[in-house]
Computed example of a mutant assay.
Amino acid sequence: MPSNDRRRAAVLGSPIAHSLSPVLHRAAYAELGLAHWTYDRFEIDEQALPGFVDGLDSSWAGLSLTMPLKRVVIPLLDSVSETASSVEAVNTVVFTEEGRRTGDNTDIPGMIAALRERGVEKVESAAVLGAGATASSALAALSEVCAGPVTAYVRSAERGREMLGWGERLGVDVRTADWARADEALHAPLVIATTPAGTTDALTGAVPERPGTLFDVLYEPWPTALAAAWTARGGSVVGGLDLLVHQAVLQVELMTGRVPAPLAAMRRAGEAALAAR
Rank of each mutant, 00 (worst) to 15 (best):
L69T: 04
D45P: 09
L76W: 11
S85W: 00
S85P: 00
A48S: 14
R26F: 05
Y39M: 03
F42P: 02
A61E: 09
A48E: 15
R71S: 15
A17S: 15
Y39E: 03
L63G: 06
N91H: 10
F42H: 15
L49Y: 08
R71N: 13
S64P: 05
V72W: 06
P75D: 10
A27K: 00
A61R: 15
A35V: 14
G13M: 08
R41I: 04
G33P: 06
E88G: 11
F52D: 04
L32Y: 01
I74M: 15
L12P: 04
V90G: 05
A84E: 10
F52I: 05
I44E: 02
A84R: 05
V73D: 02
G55K: 05
S85F: 02
S21D: 03
L63M: 12
E82D: 14
P15T: 13
A89K: 06
M67L: 14
P50W: 08
W37Y: 11
Q47M: 08
V90I: 02
S58W: 12
G62W: 06
A27L: 05
T83H: 04
L56A: 01
M67G: 00
R26E: 14
L12W: 09
P50H: 09
S59A: 15
G55P: 03
L56V: 06
E88L: 14
W60I: 07
L65E: 12
G55W: 10
V11N: 02
V87C: 01
D78K: 01
V90A: 07
A17M: 02
V80F: 08
A30K: 09
H36W: 13
R71H: 14
A35L: 13
S86Y: 01
L12K: 02
E82A: 13
K70M: 08
V73L: 08
I16F: 10
D40A: 13
P68V: 08
F52T: 00
L20T: 02
A61S: 15
G33T: 03
D45C: 10
D78T: 08
I16N: 10
R41M: 12
T92E: 14
Q47V: 12
